[in-house]
């Protein structure tokens, strides 16, 4: 799918994405990468300039399919003069959800005590919780959540993460965008990385890290200069550098045992050998820096 706005701005550029049913799917990308526009297209708020979208097998925005989709797109938008409960009652009327649904979801997101307060009096975190509650109203098969933990305190973040995990365990499909890489890593089964409207990577967190070249081995060995020379010539080693008496070896971590044997057979004492995996943050920065950030 592609979305080009009048004036020539291309928010999403030839994006092809498949979200497996029953997965918690993470959507990563710097600001302006096209995450929110993609999510808007998935719920039918924005129409693609070209391309084809199917949500639960139907074009987005189809009433019968919307009934099975819950969404929180960008910031939570509600009537400021209505209470949280009344806002959800209103949404439930449009959605055809049962009268009991608003109270149920307010309890689920921990907002029952402030249910009758006006939305305008809510803190940012409470507004965010209400947005998640509205997305849960229809007991949807697919949840589309754009930065759902924005503004939440640590306890709130933890609660929402646990809620997302439990939704995943119950077989719901969740599409989650976030700037918090640890959150995505902890919650999501698969991750797609967007940059400037294009998909730059798609896979599990391990697969994304592996895409950077597998990581590094840290080796402490004596004598260091002999170990350095020995490793340089070893097959599968891309680079070796000595830092504070420790060797940093860029290679596939699966070669650790082989390298250890080579050093020992060369008469070198190996005091320590451990794998250093790339963090998801490093993977994210690497993947999004190749084409630059649009801000």
């Amino acid at each position: 799918m592609t979305k080009r706005y009048p004036g020539g701005v291309t928010a999403v550029d030839g994006l092809t994405l498949r979200v497996p049913q029953g997965s918690v799917f993470g959507f990563l990308g710097p600001n302006g990468a096209g995450k929110t526009t993609t999510m808007r297209m998935l719920v039918g708020l924005v129409r693609p300039t070209s391309g084809r979208i199917r949500v639960l097998g139907q074009p987005p925005g189809t009433p019968n399919k919307l009934r099975r989709v819950g969404a929180l797109i960008e910031s939570p938008a509600f009537y400021p003069h209505l209470s949280g409960l009344d806002n959800l009652r209103l949404a439930a009327r449009y959605a055809g959800a049962p009268d009991s649904a608003p109270s149920r979801v307010l309890a689920e997101v921990g907002l029952a005590e402030r249910a009758r307060s006006a939305f305008r009096t809510y803190s940012l975190g409470m507004k965010q919780r209400l947005g998640v509650a509205a997305a849960l109203l229809k007991e949807p098969s697919l949840l589309i959540l754009d930065e759902p933990t924005n503004g939440l305190d640590p306890a709130g973040v933890s609660e929402i993460r646990e809620l997302l995990r439990s939704l995943g365990r119950r077989g719901r499909t969740v599409l989650l965008s976030s700037h918090v890489l640890a959150e995505v890593e902890q919650v999501c089964d698969r991750i797609a990385v967007l940059n400037r409207g294009r998909l730059v990577a798609d896979g599990t967190a391990d697969e994304l890290r592996a895409a950077l070249g597998g990581g590094q081995l840290l080796i402490a060995a004596d004598p260091t200069d002999k170990a350095l020379a020995c490793l340089r010539d070893h097959r599968g080693v891309r680079a070796v550098e000595a830092v504070d008496g420790t060797l940093r070896v860029s290679t596939d971590p699966a070669l650790a045992a082989d390298l250890n044997r080579t050093l020992v057979e060369a008469g070198i004492d190996v005091r320590e050998l451990r794998t250093v995996r790339h963090s998801l943050e490093e993977a994210f920065l690497e993947l999004t820096s190749t084409t630059g950030s649009s801000g």
Binding site: G44, L45, G61, P63, S75, A77, Y79, N87, Y94
Partner: peptide
Amino acid sequence: RWGTLNLIFTQRPRRAQV
């Protein structure tokens, strides 16, 4: 102004009905 069309249009009815 409040962005509430986002909320309403992602519920069930067609936009014309809303």
